[in-house]
Design a protein around this nucleic acid. Structure first.
Lengths: 200, 200
DNA sequence: GGGCGACTAGATAGATCGCTCTAGCGGTAA
DNA sequence: TTACCGCTAGAGCGATCTATCTAGTCGCCC
């Protein structure tokens, strides 16, 4: 995803290149020239595939990257033997990716989300839709473990907040301390909720 | 802080104006022309007071806004009768500010922190210094409540991560649900830590 | 083979970017 | 008064931004 594949179709290379740049430099910090250069695509192709310009490209990248990242996290839960291990693995895996990419690849949309929240309504809505879909997906996992609806949703929001917040601290400090602390905290909270529900 | 005072010195008006714009539009999204326009200052004054240009201005704004916000949060803890109430009040107060400012004023540096983490080393270092100072301040509060050093630091990081992460979700969705959920989660974690330490 | 649509390719427009430059104002000290 | 200095004031530079425009290339179907 980060490195565009030479053989892939132009439109996909542009999407991949844009997603990679959004993570590192945000929306306003990413120029269309850089996007096509990194994608090895001609400038004209960008406006052929995305007649709506930068904003339309942004909306599509947010939805696409958001769905991919959501699937990635859910696959970590799938691979784990139980919910608590899954929560732990998410934070550990995120820390590993962060270190492997020199603290560049965290959440694919959080930087853009903050940038556009007060200045670009279509993009703000796109990020909101992605976050809501993540909350719904995570809630389903918590419900499947035996928690009631409102507790599951609250835990899902706390889980995502801890992850996103820890990403900020980790990328700023260039350490994984925050993800480790947030991961342990998330585990504590989930464990407590399971105990309260009499499931564990 | 958000609205520059007409009578304040030019340099301070520029700093205030910049801080306000950074929250809403981020670092790259904020132009120097907009800054001086909003500050009612001549363009030349900007480079008189900040010979280092936009980057130097950014570093000073990050440190200044970071210190002010840290003091604000600490004053909430001071006003609360106990630690648990203080934690709760922080999230509730943050939600109130968010609603009052049409979901614009959250953390003054998180947007900038994500934008510059992989592209501007001096600014990245500045944000890291601010976050570390917050962690140290919050840790002191938790230690004062009877928790040991490592637990206090871990709780401080979790507290800040929950707050920053919830800000992202709230600004994207234009609701306060995430801050409410994160606030309850933070309270649960702190309460559990106090119980484990036999303090509560 | 001829025509057509999808796509490539890049020059270019108009606006805005960060930044530099010179000129001038107003208060203070010699 | 004259010289100086902190600061105001804004014109203007080269670069870069998003977006548009025309021209050319490719494969596919009739």
């Amino acid at each position: 995803m980060a490195t565009p594949v030479e053989s892939a179709p132009t439109k996909q290379r542009i999407l991949d290149s844009t997603a990679a740049q959004f993570m590192r430099h945000g929306y306003t910090g990413t120029g269309l020239k850089q996007i096509v250069a990194a994608a090895n695509a001609p400038f004209g192709s960008l406006y052929h595939h995305f007649p709506g310009g930068k904003q339309a490209l942004g909306v599509e990248v947010i939805h696409r990257s958001g769905a991919m990242y959501g699937d990635l996290v859910m696959s970590v839960f799938d691979a784990a033997p139980d919910l608590l291990t899954g929560v732990h693995d998410c934070f550990e895996g995120a820390a590993a990716v962060l270190v492997a990419t020199d603290y560049a690849d965290a959440c694919p949309i959080e930087t853009v989300a903050l940038e556009v929240a007060s200045s670009n309504e279509p993009l703000r809505v796109a990020t909101a839709e992605v976050f809501e879909s993540w909350i719904v997906s995570a809630s389903a996992r918590f419900r499947a473990a035996g928690l009631d609806d409102s507790t599951a949703r609250e835990l899902a929001i706390a889980f995502i907040s801890l992850l996103e917040g820890a990403f900020i601290l980790c990328r700023a400090s260039r350490t994984t301390e925050a993800l480790e602390a947030a991961g342990r905290t998330a585990a504590v909270v989930v464990e407590a909720a399971l105990r309260d529900a009499g499931v564990s």
